[in-house]
C-alpha cells in the first residue's frame, strides 16, 4: 500500500516539475534549460519575502510566482528571441542563464541546508495504514488541480487555444493571426510560473538548496523525453511511469538507485522508441 501512496506522491511531484518544461517546449520548441533554476529561484524568493521582508506566506508565494513569470518572459524577450531556431544555441543560452541564476543565488547567500519553507499544513495522517504528512497529500491534490486547470485553460480560453494551436502547427496558427513571438513569451511566463508553483509545494518537504535546480532539470528532461518532447499527455503518463519506477526501486533496491531510474528511462526510451511515448517525430513521416 505504501508503494501506491508514495508512488502517487512521487509521480505528482514529477508531473509538477515537468509541466512547465513541456508547455514551453510544446508551444515554442524551446528547450528551457533554465527550468530548474527558475524552480529554485521561486523558492528562494518566497523564502526571502517570508523571512526577510516578513510578508504573509500566501502573499510571498504569489509575489514570487509573479516575479518568476516576469523573469521567464524577459528571458525570452531579451535573449532567446534572438537565437530562436538554432536548437544548440537555445540550449546553451538557457542553460547559461540557469547557471547564472543558480550560482548567483549561491553567491548571494543560498548556502547550507537552513533555508526552509514551512509546510502549508503541519502534521501527518494515516491513510490506508500508511502514515503520510499533509504536505505530500497537498502535492497530489495540487498536481491534479494544476493538470485540470491547465486543461481547462488550453481548451476553453482564447489564449490557451492559441497556445495549443501554436504547439500543433506553427505555420497554420500564424495564418490565423496568432503571433509566434507573443505566444513564446506567454508560454515562457506560464512555464516559469509552473516551475515556481511546483517549487512552492515541493520545497516545504525539504530545504532549499542550489543543487535542487540541477536535479529538477534532469527530472523534467527525463519525463519529457520518455513522454515524447512537447506532448502534454505524454509528460503526465511518463511522470507516473518514472514515479512508480522510482518508488519500486527505493523499496527493493535502496534509495541511492532512485536517480538512476530517470537516467535509465532516458536511455531505454532513446533506444527503443526515440520519439517517446507520444512523440511528434512520427508526424515527420509523410501522411498524404
Amino acid at each position: 500500500m505504501d508503494i501506491v501512496i508514495y508512488g502517487m506522491v512521487t509521480s505528482c511531484s514529477l508531473a509538477l516539475m515537468a509541466l512547465g518544461f513541456t508547455l514551453v517546449y510544446g508551444v515554442s520548441r524551446l528547450p528551457n534549460f533554465a527550468h530548474g533554476a527558475l524552480y529554485v529561484l521561486t523558492g528562494y524568493l518566497a523564502w526571502l519575502l517570508l523571512k526577510r521582508v516578513g510578508l504573509p506566506y500566501p502573499v510571498a508565494m504569489i509575489l514570487s510566482l509573479v516575479v518568476t513569470g516576469i523573469i521567464g518572459a524577459a528571458m525570452y524577450h531579451f535573449v532567446l528571441a534572438r537565437i530562436r531556431g538554432m536548437p544548440i544555441s537555445e540550449i546553451i543560452a538557457s542553460y547559461a542563464i540557469g547557471l547564472a541564476i543558480l550560482e548567483g543565488m549561491r553567491w548571494f547567500g543560498l548556502r547550507g541546508g537552513t533555508f526552509r519553507l514551512p509546510p502549508f499544513v503541519d502534521g501527518a495522517t494515516e491513510l490506508l495504514g500508511v502514515s503520510v504528512d499533509f504536505q505530500r497529500l497537498i502535492v497530489v491534490g495540487l498536481g491534479v488541480v494544476m493538470v485540470g486547470l491547465l486543461w481547462l485553460f488550453v481548451s476553453k480560453t482564447k489564449l490557451g487555444l492559441a497556445l495549443k494551436g501554436m504547439a500543433q502547427d506553427e505555420r497554420a496558427a500564424m495564418t490565423l493571426g496568432i503571433d509566434s513571438d507573443t505566444m513564446a513569451v506567454v508560454a515562457m511566463a506560464l512555464g516559469s510560473m509552473l516551475a515556481g508553483a511546483a517549487a512552492l509545494v515541493l520545497l516545504p518537504l525539504g530545504s532549499i538548496v542550489v543543487e535542487a535546480g540541477y536535479h529538477v532539470l534532469i527530472m523534467a528532461v527525463a519525463v519529457c523525453i520518455v513522454g515524447g518532447l512537447g506532448s502534454w499527455n505524454g509528460a503526465i503518463l511518463a511522470a507516473f511511469i518514472i514515479g512508480f519506477a522510482q518508488i519500486l526501486t527505493w523499496k527493493y533496491f535502496g534509495a541511492h538507485y532512485q536517480v538512476v531510474v530517470a537516467l535509465l528511462a532516458i536511455i531505454v526510451t532513446l533506444i527503443v522508441r526515440p520519439s517517446g511515448l507520444f512523440g511528434r517525430q512520427k508526424e515527420l513521416e509523410e501522411r498524404v
Partner: peptide, 8 residues
C-alpha cells in the same frame, strides 16, 4: 494541405 490542428 489544409494544416488542420490534428489534436484539436
Amino acid at each position: 494541405r489544409r494544416r488542420i490542428f490534428p489534436e484539436c
